[in-house]
C-alpha cells in the first residue's frame, strides 16, 4: 500500500520541473547523471540508444535483463553497436584496475587457461603480446574499428556488411575477462560483484549469437 501511494506523489513532482539531463560544471559526484530516464520512444536525440543504455546502467548496473533488452522495434545492428561501444567503455575502466597487478613481467603471455595462447590481432601481422599489451591493443583497435569512418560512418545506421565486425570484437573482448578470471581472480570477483559486467557481456554475446558456446571459458 505504502509503495503504491508514493508513486503518484512522485509523478506530479517531475512534471512541472523537467530537469535538464545535463551535468553542469561543478556538479557533485553524487549528483552526476541524476535525472529521470526518458522513455526511448519519446527520446528524439541522435544518440537515444546510447542514452537508453547508459540510463539503464545508471539505474541499476546489475539488472542485466533491463540493460540488454532492446526497445521494441529497435534496429538490431544499431543496438549491438551501441552495446559494444558501452562495453568497450567499461572495459577501459576495467583495464585501469590492472595497473598494479598485471604487467609484462607478471603476465608475459596472454593466456586464460593454459590450453590457449591468444595472439594479438591489432597489428598488421598477428603477434604475441603480453597480457596487458593485449588489453591495451585490443581496446585501442576496438575503438578504432567502432569509430571507423569506413565501417561505421554513422551511429544511427549500421551497414550490414560492417556488422560482421561484431563477432571478432566480442570474441576478443571476452578474452580480457577470461584472462582476469584465470589470472587475477580476486580482482575479477571484486569487480564482478560490483558491476556484473562479465555476466552481462557473456549474456549479451550468447543472446545475440556473437559468442559461440565453445568460446565461453569462464565457468564458475
Amino acid at each position: 500500500m505504502a509503495s503504491e501511494e508514493q508513486q503518484p506523489q512522485q509523478q506530479p513532482q517531475q512534471q512541472p520541473q523537467p530537469t535538464k539531463r545535463r551535468n553542469r560544471i561543478g556538479t557533485k559526484n553524487k549528483d552526476l547523471y541524476k535525472w529521470e530516464p526518458t522513455t526511448y520512444e519519446l527520446n528524439e536525440s541522435s544518440y537515444a540508444t546510447q542514452e537508453y543504455i547508459q540510463d539503464r546502467i545508471r539505474m541499476d548496473e546489475t539488472n542485466i535483463d533491463a540493460i540488454l533488452r532492446a526497445p521494441e522495434g529497435h534496429d538490431v545492428n544499431v543496438w549491438l553497436y551501441e552495446q559494444i561501444r558501452q562495453f568497450t567503455l567499461e572495459l577501459n575502466h576495467f583495464s585501469v584496475l590492472f595497473k598494479d597487478i598485471c604487467n609484462q613481467n607478471t603476465c608475459p603471455k596472454m593466456k586464460a587457461t593454459d590450453d590457449w595462447l591468444f595472439l594479438c590481432a591489432s597489428h598488421p601481422a598477428i603477434q604475441e603480446c603480453s597480457a596487458i599489451d593485449y588489453f591495451i591493443h585490443t581496446l585501442d583497435s576496438t575503438s578504432a574499428t567502432l569509430n571507423s569512418e569506413k565501417l561505421f560512418p554513422k551511429r544511427m545506421e549500421i551497414p550490414p556488411s560492417s556488422a560482421k565486425q561484431f563477432n571478432s570484437i566480442v570474441r576478443r573482448l571476452y578474452r580480457l575477462f577470461a584472462h582476469a578470471f584465470y589470472h587475477h581472480r580476486e580482482l575479477f570477483n571484486d569487480f564482478e560483484a560490483k558491476t556484473q559486467l562479465c555476466k552481462r557481456f557473456t549474456q549479451f554475446g550468447k543472446d545475440n549469437g556473437l559468442l559461440p558456446k565453445s568460446a565461453i571459458i569462464i565457468k564458475e
Binding site: V96, K99, I132, H137, S141
Partner: peptide, 10 residues
C-alpha cells in the same frame, strides 16, 4: 606507435 609494447596499463 599506439600498438607498441607498453608493458603496463598506466
Amino acid at each position: 606507435d599506439p600498438y607498441d609494447c607498453h608493458g603496463k596499463v598506466i
